[in-house]
Simulated scan of single mutants.
Amino acid sequence: MDTTTNYINNFLNYLKLQRGESPNTIRAYKKDLFEFFQFVKTMPEEVDSVAIRGFISEQILKGNSKTTVTRKLSSIRSFFSYLYSEGIIKINPARAVSSLKVRRNLPKFLTIDDTFKLIESPSEDKFIVQRDRAMLELLYGCGIRVSELCSLNLEDLNLKDGLIKVKGKGQKERIVPLGQKAKEAIKKYLAMRHILRIKKRFATQEAPLFINNRGNRISDRQVRRVVIKYAKAIGIQEKIGPHTLRHTFASHLLMEGADLRVIQELLGHSSLSTTQIYTHIDLKHLMEIYDKSHPLNKEEN
C-alpha cells in the first residue's frame, strides 16, 4: 500500500470513528480523493493550490455540475485539513482555493392533493403494500431522510407516546413526533411483519423496522423504487423520490405557519440557513395566491 492510499484510509477511518459519517458519505470522499490524486499524480505533501485549481477546472470542463464540483472540492479541503491537523503537512494548500458560487435550486414539492393521493395509493391488505404505506406515511409525516428511514429499528419506535428516535447525519439523534395516520399505518404493517417473521423464522438478533420479504433491512434504492412506483401509478410525471417528500413535509409546514426553527429541529438541520431555503418556496406560493386572488389581478385576466 502506497503512502497516499495509507493517508486516505486513515482519513476515512477518522470520518467513520471520530465524526460518525455515514457509509455513503465515506464512499463519496474515497471516490473524490482517489480521482484527485489520479489527476495530480503526486504525493499529498507536494500538492499545491495550483494543482487543486487545475483539478477543479478539469471537472468543470468535463461538464460536471457546480454542485458535484463543489462536493469534490469539499472532500479535498477536508482531507488536507486532516493532514494539517495531524502534522503531516506544514501548509494547507486547499485554504488558498476559493469556493465555487453555486446557485441553489428550489427543491421540488408536491401539492397537498397529490401528496395524499400518493400516500393513500398503497391500499391492498398485503405485507409489502402495508410496508410501503407505512414508509410513505413516515417520509411525509415526519420529513425524515431516506437513510434515516432505512436505519430505523423497532426499538426506535414509541407508538404509545407517538414518537420515533431518528439517527441523522453524523449519528446525531433527534426525537420526531408521529402523526395519527403514521401510527395507524405502522401498526398495520407491524402486525403483518410479525406474522411474516413467524412464518419465515427470521433471525431476531437485529430488528430493523422496515424489511423485505426475506427479512433483510430495506435499502435506500428499494425505497426510491417504491416512491417512483406509486408516483407513476397516480400520474405524477415529474421525477420525484423520497427526498421530494421531505421537501414537501417542510414546505407544507411552513405554508401552515410553522416556525422556521421548529422545522429546523424536525428536519435535523444543524444550521438554520439550510432550512431557510423553504422561505423562498413559501414566498413563491404566496405570490401565486396573490396573482390568483387579488381583485386587481382578476380584473386584468
Rank of each mutant, 00 (worst) to 15 (best):
Lys188Ile: 10
Tyr189Arg: 01
Leu190Ser: 02
Leu190Trp: 07
Ala191Ile: 13
Ala191Ser: 11
Met192Lys: 15
Met192Asp: 07
Arg193Asn: 00
His194Gln: 07
Leu196Asp: 05
Leu196Gln: 09
Arg197Trp: 08
Ile198His: 04
Lys199Glu: 08
Lys199Cys: 11
Lys200Gly: 13
Arg201Asn: 14
Phe202Glu: 02
Phe202Val: 01
Phe202Cys: 00
Phe202Leu: 03
Ala203Ile: 13
Ala203Gln: 13
Thr204Met: 14
Thr204Ala: 06
Thr204Lys: 15
Thr204Gln: 15
Gln205Gly: 12
Gln205Leu: 07
Gln205Cys: 10
Gln205Ser: 15
Glu206Ser: 08
Glu206Asn: 11
Glu206Arg: 10
Pro208Thr: 00
Pro208Ser: 00
Pro208Trp: 00
Pro208Met: 05
Leu209Thr: 04
Leu209Ile: 04
Leu209Trp: 09
Phe210Ser: 04
Phe210Cys: 11
Ile211Met: 03
Ile211Arg: 00
Arg214Tyr: 10
Arg214Asp: 15
Gly215Ala: 03
Asn216Ala: 08
Asn216Cys: 12
Asn216Ser: 14
Arg217Ile: 03
Arg217Phe: 04
Arg217Tyr: 02
Arg217Gln: 03
Asp220Asn: 14
Asp220Thr: 13
Arg221Tyr: 05
Arg221Gly: 07
Gln222Met: 05
Gln222His: 11
Gln222Cys: 14
Gln222Ile: 12
Gln222Arg: 13
Gln222Thr: 15
Val223Asn: 03
Val223Phe: 01
Val223Lys: 01
Arg224Trp: 05
Arg224Gln: 07
Arg224Glu: 05
Arg224Cys: 02
Arg225Val: 02
Arg225Trp: 03
Arg225Asn: 05
Val226Thr: 13
Ile228His: 09
Ile228Trp: 12
Ile228Pro: 12
Lys229Leu: 01
Lys229Phe: 05
Lys229Thr: 01
Tyr230Ile: 02
Ala231Val: 05
Ala231Trp: 06
Ala231Cys: 09
Lys232Cys: 02
Lys232Val: 10
Ile234Thr: 00
Ile234Ser: 01
Gly235Gln: 06
Gly235Ile: 04
Gly235Thr: 02
Gly235Met: 04
Ile236Ser: 05
Ile236Gly: 10
Ile236Leu: 14
Gln237Leu: 07
Glu238Lys: 14
Glu238Gln: 09
Ile240Met: 08
Pro242Gln: 02
His243Lys: 11
His243Cys: 02
His243Leu: 04
Thr244Tyr: 00
Leu245Cys: 06
Leu245Phe: 04
Arg246Ser: 12
His247Ala: 03
His247Glu: 09
His247Cys: 05
Phe249Trp: 00
Phe249Gly: 10
Ser251Glu: 09
Ser251Asp: 10
Ser251Cys: 07
His252Tyr: 00
His252Ala: 01
His252Val: 15
His252Cys: 03
Leu253Tyr: 11
Leu254Tyr: 04
Leu254Val: 06
Leu254Trp: 07
Met255Tyr: 15
Met255Phe: 07
Glu256Lys: 04
Glu256Ala: 15
Gly257Gln: 10
Gly257Ile: 01
Ala258Gln: 14
Asp259His: 03
Asp259Pro: 04
Asp259Asn: 09
Asp259Gly: 04
Asp259Val: 03
Leu260Ser: 11
Val262Gly: 09
Ile263Glu: 06
Ile263Asp: 09
Ile263Met: 08
Glu265His: 12
